[in-house]
Write a protein that binds this DNA or RNA. Sequence first.
DNA 1: TGAACATATGAACATTTGTTCATATGTATT
DNA 2: AATACATATGAACAAATGTTCATATGTTCA
Lengths: 96, 96
Amino acid sequence: MKKIDENTLYDTAELFKNFSDSTRIRILYCLFEKERSVTEIAELLKMNQSAISHQLRFLKNSKLVKNRRDGKTIYYSLDDDHVYNIISQGIEHVQE
Amino acid sequence: MKKIDENTLYDTAELFKNFSDSTRIRILYCLFEKERSVTEIAELLKMNQSAISHQLRFLKNSKLVKNRRDGKTIYYSLDDDHVYNIISQGIEHVQE
DNA sequence: TGAACATATGAACATTTGTTCATATGTATT
DNA sequence: AATACATATGAACAAATGTTCATATGTTCA
């Protein structure tokens, strides 16, 4: 790794902020397997739809998830290969 | 990666919380190179000693840094190989 | 022992964050 | 067009967070 400027570190903190909340990390984790609708995610996490929607927007702004519409339903999925890797590494660390 | 329980995901979020604040990630990053005293870190980051001390305690509780005393001075250093890897991967992601 | 230095800590405060509630938007079906 | 369903969004609120200030603790050296 080469020398890093301050802005890069700020941006890196922003990236990790996505993974620092248990709701968001659980959302991302349940997208590991496959794309899911908002309702589906809300049911899986036993949280209300609004909370999930707000967090999905957060993740979307950070370009970590993408979505597609199919009729009334909007499916979310991971938008970034690194997400899987970074979270997996975090999980492995915790599991040791 | 095998199936994960809820607690593991909570703990993983806790781990990432360490990296989600720019002060903490800058502290960790400046420890990449070598161990440093509290005063030294405060000067590098242009922040007051108290703020750094509080964040170091946070990082110490999470077992991400360790310290040793040499006379009046206390030197902090990284306590975990994974820290370097996870942050590096985050930085690489941001730099793309 | 007393002064100077390095670090830690508690309290207070402002800011940020995550959730809920109510409601708006968009789509499909009848 | 009206209704039902899926999702998004704004406002309000409580809780968590990060910093500062003041001060305490611990160490060294004269």
